[in-house]
Structure formats: C-alpha cells, structure tokens
Amino acid sequence: MQVENKEFKPTIVAFCCNWCSYAGADLAGTGRMQYPANVKIIRVPCSCRVNPTFILRAFQRGADGVIMCGCHPGDCHYTSGNYYARRRMTMLFDFLDYLGIEKGRTRVEWVSAAEGARFASVMNEFVKNVTELGPNKRITDLRCKMEKEGE
C-alpha cells in the first residue's frame, strides 16, 4: 500500500482566472518557483465562469483533485465574479463531500497577480494533500477508465 502511495501521482485540474491567478501562475514561472507537474491549468476569464459541471466532469474523467483560483475578494476584475464563484463552490464542495469526494480534493484559493510565490506554495500544499488522500475512485466514470485502458 505504501509503495502504491509513493508512486501515485494525482491528476489535478486548476481553474485560474485570467486577471489574477493565471498571472500569478505566470509570475511563479518567471520566478522559477517549483510546484509539481501534476497541476494542469485551465484559463478562464473569471472564477465565476467555472461551472460546477466542469468540476464534476473532471472528477468523472479521473481527476484526483480540482482547485479553483481567483482574484482576492474585492479585487475581481469584473467587480463581483469571485463572490458568485465562492458561493457556488461552497455549495458544490459540500455536495461533493456528501458524494464521497473529500473536502481535501476540492479547494478555492485567492491568488493575486503579484503572488507568484503564494501560487507555488498553494499548489505544493494542495498536491501533497491530494496525494495523501490517494486516487479518486468515487465518481470516476468506469466507461472512461475502460476507454483509457483500451488505448
């Protein structure tokens, strides 16, 4: 079991808003701040563009963790988008927890365009947490898995 955990590399989807968090991720890159390669970033205009179905889809397709990053409360480029996102995600994560996707696999973080170091540290910590939780099996669509193995 331990051996399996060591080798386990979670798939992590990060939704980043274009104005703050994606720029923060860019800054982490410019500053050569390391974080695990498992994190794959999807750029969205604003955190409020993240539809709960995107997150469900990710888990269904075999993601082990999903993190959503936006501008700090009060700093949204679109004034109020991150507030909508925050409410939606609070509800969704509660619901996912009920379904058996632990709270540790889902996360909302506010990262500004100036916080490259914070972006890296958030990602490092999140990957560590998800790795400890192990693979997500709860709502993975078995058909997707078969497809994958079929390849």
């Binding site: 563009r49 179905t53 990710a58 397709r61």
Partner: peptide
C-alpha cells in the same frame, strides 16, 4: 470560452 470548449480541455487533461 464555451462550455464545450472548457469541457474538452478538462477531458484532455484528465
């Protein structure tokens, strides 16, 4: 940034 486009990105990553 349509629903389908973002879903396709999610699928490709996962």
């Amino acid at each position: 940034f349509t629903n389908k486009q973002i879903m396709a990105e999610v699928d490709a990553i996962c």
